[in-house]
């Protein structure tokens, strides 16, 4: 591979473009594939198979050939509501797991740059903040304020947008009250039951990094269930 091609791959990864690298394992030639764009003669004959690998987000060698394909998918978007202590650890875990995090917190004193260096924090109420984030069914929400004024509108937004993972911090009692409010707001029981509350898998820990670990573990597990 040429160094210039490596740089192009890194650039595409950084700009969150979905693409694949196609390599001929015999002669070492490689090329970047993007859907809708043409391939060179070397790889054109495998276009159909490359397309299939790309659609399935699969890596591998095309059967009976020496052509290897590696697909790059866009990072999963995770929206955290509440720039609280747990969120600081979640940001660390998310970095090594390559989740793309946005934090929403209308409370300026929480969402300071010093607490979250190099982090995109939207210092607005959820209804306004979500206008700045492109989300879909492959997005996740982690609500951490356990303040209904802030969490509830975010939860409602995520439910309406059918996020694949929605979790909300708070005790069983807090969660019961939350479920009741969502019911009153017109959400059905399937929707309400899809919320992970109390959030996280049971680890037993109570410290901020331990709770962050239990949340991120649940998020990864749910990602593979889908």
């Amino acid at each position: 591979m040429k160094h210039s091609q490596l740089k192009e791959i890194i650039k595409k990864k950084a700009s969150k473009i979905e693409f694949a690298i196609v390599t001929n394992l015999e002669n070492g030639l490689s090329e970047i594939y993007e859907p809708g764009k043409s391939l060179s003669k070397e790889f054109e004959i495998y276009k159909q198979q490359i397309d299939n690998f790309f659609k399935l987000k699969k890596n591998g060698v095309i059967e009976n050939t020496e052509i290897f394909i590696e697909t790059y998918v866009r990072p999963i978007k995770v929206i955290i509501v509440g720039a609280v202590h747990i969120a600081q650890y979640l940001v660390d875990f998310a970095k090594s797991l390559n989740f793309e995090i946005s934090i929403i917190d209308p409370r300026g004193y929480f969402a300071s740059e010093q607490r979250f260096p190099d982090m995109k924090i939207i210092n607005k109420w959820p209804d306004e903040a979500f206008k700045e984030i492109e989300t879909n069914e492959n997005s996740a929400l982690i609500a951490l304020t356990h303040d209904p004024k802030i969490d509830d509108p975010a939860l409602q937004y995520a439910l309406n947008k059918k996020f694949y993972y929605i979790g909300a911090l708070g005790s069983k009692k807090t969660h019961e009250n939350r479920c009741q409010r969502l019911k009153d707001a017109g959400f059905n029981s399937d929707q309400i039951n899809s919320i992970h509350g109390p959030i996280g898998i049971k680890l037993g820990g109570r410290s901020a990094p331990e709770i962050a670990l239990s949340i991120i573990a649940q998020l990864v597990s749910e990602t593979y269930k889908k």
């Binding site: 998918v73 999963i76 990864v220 990602t223 593979y224």
Partner: peptide, 11 residues
């Protein structure tokens, strides 16, 4: 869903 776990080796 495939996650995009990335160990930043190319970088």
């Amino acid at each position: 869903m495939k996650n995009s776990f990335d160990e930043k080796i190319l970088e």
